[in-house]
C-alpha cells in the first residue's frame, strides 16, 4: 500500500471459509479482532484505537449467515446485517420491531454494512440493537475451540465496549424470542442530527389483555454504561400505572454518564420522556410521539 487516508496499524488478516477455521484462527491469537460488517472495527483501526495483531474476517463463513425462525425463537446468524432486518427478514411483531429499530441506525450505507451481532460485540452504550437485546433477553451464542456457551444479553453486555466474550470466542448467533401476534412494538429515539448516534433510544414490546398490560419488554440504550432492560419501568406498567408511571420508574433502571452536550439530569429526563411516549403510542394509539 502507498499513502492513503485509510491507515490502520499493521495486522495479519485471515479469511476463514468455515466456522472451524475461524475458531482455530481466533484460538491461536487471543488478541485477534473479528471483522464482520466492519461498521465499527474499520473506523477504530483507522483511528488506531487499538492494534490487533490479527484480524479474522468471518464474512465468508457460511454457518454464520441467515435467519432461522421456529415456533418460539428467531435466530439471527452473526452475519445478519441491519439492512436485512430493515427489509423484513424476520416475520411478525418481532420483525416489525427489528425493522423499525434498524431504520434508526445511522444511515443507509452503514446499515448495509453493520451486523446485529457485531453491534452487540461492540457494545456501544447507545447502540439500538443493544436495547433490543436487553429488552428481549436475547441469548448470545458464543463458540470457541473449547466449546459453546450461551449468555443472556444482561450478562453479555458489560459496559462501553466491554462484553463477556473471551479471547478465542466468536458470536455465532443471537436468539430472540418470537413475539405474540398481538404484541405491540415500538421505538422512540432522541438524537441531535439525522446521522448522529442516539442520545437515548427506548424499545418496547407490550402485550395487553383489555386495558391491562400482561407482558412488557422495555430496553433503554444511551442512559447507562450499557443498554439495560428497564425492569422497574416494566413493573410499574404491569402494576397498572400506565406510561406515566413507567416513565417515572425508569430512573431506577438507568445510570447516565455526562456528555459534553447533555448532563445527567437531562439524559434521565429524556429517557423518561421517551419511555412515556413510546408506551403512549403503543397503549393509547397516540401516533404523534417521538
Amino acid at each position: 500500500m502507498g499513502w492513503g487516508p485509510v491507515k490502520p496499524p499493521p495486522f495479519d488478516l485471515v479469511q476463514p471459509g468455515t466456522l472451524v477455521e475461524a475458531l482455530v484462527a481466533l484460538d491461536a491469537e487471543p488478541d485477534a479482532a473479528v471483522l464482520a460488517g466492519g461498521q465499527s472495527l474499520l473506523q477504530d483501526l483507522r483511528w488506531r484505537r487499538f492494534a490487533p495483531p490479527l484480524v479474522v474476517d468471518v464474512g465468508g463463513v457460511a454457518e454464520l449467515r441467515g435467519v432461522t425462525v421456529d415456533d418460539d425463537t428467531v435466530r439471527l446468524g452473526a452475519l445478519v446485517r441491519h439492512v436485512d432486518l430493515e427489509r423484513g427478514a424476520v416475520p411478525g411483531p418481532l420483525g416489525t420491531l427489528l425493522a423499525e429499530t434498524a431504520g434508526w441506525i445511522a444511515h443507509p450505507p452503514i446499515r448495509s454494512r453493520g451486523t446485529f451481532a457485531g453491534s452487540l460485540a461492540w457494545a456501544h452504550p447507545a447502540a439500538e440493537w443493544t436495547a433490543v437485546a436487553a429488552a428481549l433477553d436475547a441469548q448470545v451464542e458464543l463458540a470457541s475451540r473449547a466449546g459453546y456457551r450461551t449468555l443472556p444479553a444482561a450478562e453479555f453486555l458489560h459496559g462501553p465496549g466491554a462484553t463477556a466474550r473471551r479471547p478465542g470466542e466468536l458470536i455465532i448467533a443471537v436468539t430472540l424470542p418470537v413475539l405474540g401476534e398481538g404484541t405491540a412494538t415500538g421505538v422512540a429515539e432522541h438524537r441531535r442530527t439525522h446521522a448522529s448516534f442516539a442520545h437515548v433510544a427506548v424499545v418496547a414490546a407490550v402485550d395487553t389483555e383489555g386495558d391491562e398490560v400482561v407482558r412488557a419488554h422495555l430496553g433503554v440504550a444511551g442512559a447507562a454504561p450499557t443498554a439495560r432492560r428497564a425492569h422497574a419501568a416494566e413493573e410499574a406498567l404491569l402494576d397498572g400505572g400506565g406510561p406515566a408511571a413507567a416513565a417515572d420508574a425508569v430512573g431506577e433502571d438507568i445510570d447516565p454518564v455526562e456528555h459534553p452536550h447533555a448532563d445527567v439530569d437531562y439524559t434521565r429526563h429524556v429517557a423518561a420522556v421517551l419511555v412515556r411516549r413510546v408506551l403512549e403510542r403503543l397503549l393509547d394509539g397516540d401516533r404523534e410521539a417521538a
Binding site: W47, R192, T193, H194, A195, S196, F197, P260, H261
Partner: peptide, 29 residues
Amino acid sequence: LYEDVPLDADGVPRLEQGLLDYLLPTAAE
C-alpha cells in the same frame, strides 16, 4: 444548532469520536 468544540477544563477538545461528536448539518438537516 449543532457545531461546537467542547473543551475540558484545560482546553483539550472532547471530540473522541470525530464527526460523531462534532455534529455537522447534512442535507437532512
